[in-house]
């Protein structure tokens, strides 16, 4: 099973912070997951409509949208990070 996490403004738009899904066989990378989530609809679809301000991590490492997925990863979607000092 694939764990999907949403953080900060992306979480607010998604309406949830975490969900577990069975990855469709046709999905092989992060962008494929995004397309599938958009087709599924609801909050996550709205949160992932515009990817300009969305970043992704796979298994807690920063990743690109072409990062491959096998179906047992932890995938997180979030806005660009803003930690640290002023």
């Amino acid at each position: 099973m694939l764990t999907i996490l949403y953080f900060a403004s992306v979480k607010e738009k998604a309406g949830c912070g975490e969900e577990t899904v069975r990855l469709p066989a046709a999905v092989s990378d992060v962008m494929g997951l995004v397309v599938w989530l958009r087709q599924r609809g609801g909050g996550p679809a709205a949160a992932l409509t515009d990817l300009a301000a969305v970043r992704v991590a796979v298994n807690q490492e920063h990743a690109r949208f072409d990062h491959p997925l096998t179906g047992d990863e932890e995938v997180a979607f979030f806005p660009p990070v803003t930690g640290g000092a002023p």
């Binding site: 900060a8 803003t82 930690g83």
Partner: peptide, 30 residues
């Protein structure tokens, strides 16, 4: 450490003012 932490560590700030709460956008200078 402080420069790179700002752009790699997954933290997000929300600011509260009299106008309400808003998420802070990432900064190009960072």
């Amino acid at each position: 450490l402080i420069d790179c932490l700002k752009t790699t560590a997954p933290f997000w700030k929300a600011e509260e003012t009299a106008a309400g709460s808003r998420w802070v956008d990432a900064c190009a200078a960072d």
